[in-house]
Design a protein around this nucleic acid. Sequence first.
RNA 1: GCCCACGUGGAGCAGCCUGGAGUGCUCGUCACCCUGUCAAGGUGAAGGUCGCCGGAUCGAAGCCGGUCGUGGGCGCCA
Length: 582
Amino acid sequence: MMRTHSCGELRASDAGSEVRLAGWVHHRRDHGKIIFLDLRDASGTVQVVVHPDVGVDAESVQREYCVSIGGTVEKRKPGTENANLPTGEIEITARSLEVLSPSETPPFIVEDGVDVDDVTRLKYRYIDLRRPEMQHALRLRAKVVGEIRSYLDARGFTEIETPILFKSTPEGARDFLVPSRLQRGSFYALPQSPQMLKQILMVGGMERYYQIARCFRDEDLRADRQLEHTQLDLEMSFVEQEDVLQLLEGLFIHLWRECVGVDVEQPFPRIPYAEAIRRFGTDHVDLRYGMELADLNEVFSETSLGIFRSVITSGGTIRGFAVPGAGELNHAQLKRLEHAAMDRGAKGLAWVILRDGGEVDSPLAKHLSERERNGIASATDGKPGDLILMMADKAEVVNPILGALRMELAKERGLIPDGAWKFCWIVDYPFFVWNPDEDKWDPIHHPFTMPVGGGETLDGDPAAVRASAYDLVLNGLELLSGSIRIHRPDIQRKVFDALGISPEDAEERFGFFLEAFRYGPPPHGGIGCGIDRVMMQMLGTENIRDVVAFPKTQSGVDPLSGAPTPVDPDQLKILGLRPLPS
RNA sequence: GCCCACGUGGAGCAGCCUGGAGUGCUCGUCACCCUGUCAAGGUGAAGGUCGCCGGAUCGAAGCCGGUCGUGGGCGCCA
């Protein structure tokens, strides 16, 4: 037997036990005669004492050596306990020590919170993964996935794998392509998501499907984006939107109870898309703090300011919000806010600082009537000492920019309460968004989303059509999105029509899919949920690399293996490929 | 494709603006000392073509240009 106990589990109650432990030498403290070793395994660390007279060679043992130690658990002498260690009341008096394998000096120390360059960490990921932080992240991730499985299995779901080698369906993100050896000149694509396959599973009568699915997108990376990410992919037959929302709400309540130890507030609020935009400027609603956007058109209906007046008469909007306590900001800081707004496309950013007695500081002060000063304060719920930020422009410009500033300022000024978990559903999405660049209507979800009310609504104003789509948002981050799908070929045709997808286009791209839908597809709907994002939220990290065992750098390189690498010309030849001169 | 920042012994940084011998800090490594430490302590030592290429200069880690790498962002991600 390699070991009788784990390092981290030993307590004072184990005193007197003969134990055999195995793990890594976390640290050695050599006092000349007596030597202390901190022995670490997955469960934690424990102190090993090597006395000079037992014939155990602890001097040649170094950091990160993998060793096996036999000895006795003993209560530490009074005054030598370590309250910082769960095992701090005891120590192991070593009687034998075997080096299982030696270690070179590690490039960095195995310790939480150490500041090491990301490439170094990724190159020596096996060292990095020894850190308790990383171990916790990966274990929690496994627990989350496990809880998802048990929750869904208990509710009649079947976990089904779908192919990694699939068909390219251009549109959306760039596909990763895999050349076919057997069909020279043809390519598989790695799935961006199993969307069509899971719908076909519904046609196949599986009724309740889920999968922890890897999804691939060949797009540029970000702090929260890798080339591949993991999605909880789920689809159910014979359901309406309400059924899906209930199931998923239950899942997240379950996950937070089991994996975070928190009972989150329920039911999750449902916020219609239009209301989300109106109150927060975005559908990634963060309900942890106030600072909601207010409409100021009424306040400025008789304004003497030319800019505001012309925005109102041209059908634009004046909106603003209060930043609690931000009246202390100096001119340079306010200027920076204005720049931040203008970088995002604002023409300007007006600011008003509320003072006692209805007075204000503002570049606009002399243009503001008493009615306007009071109106601004009451509309934004601003108090003396608060900063009011205002923008006048088209609603599509004002809302997202103010929404972004609201989020930034809340974060910057510490207005976000710790430990708050604010889930909400965003519902009643519009079906189309106008794409001014290409002068056409784009679907806000994917083109298989059911329009509310079926196909007839598509004959009217595209802007008025609702989608049976829904997002789950947590603390301002989208965790999942889904929809009820189109199961009727006639409606699907009308949607393709409205999106400018010709029958020939549709046939070429989705022919196999549309054919399946000629054979009695059931009404169905589902979701895709970013597991990496869920983990980032649970662990409170902003970097996806913290929740993935072997991530890639921003340029798509894996420093551990060096991938991607050139391949042998023979391999290319077999595939019928020849690289272009660069 | 674009913008910003960074690149200095094994790790993390300072030095650069204002050019004058690779100077410094924390940790690690090695040697010696040390029987109660837990970030052990003490003494000493080794270890760096300042990412790479080029330029101006008597002289470059430092200034200028380029390039590569990394991080963050924009575009992109239905």
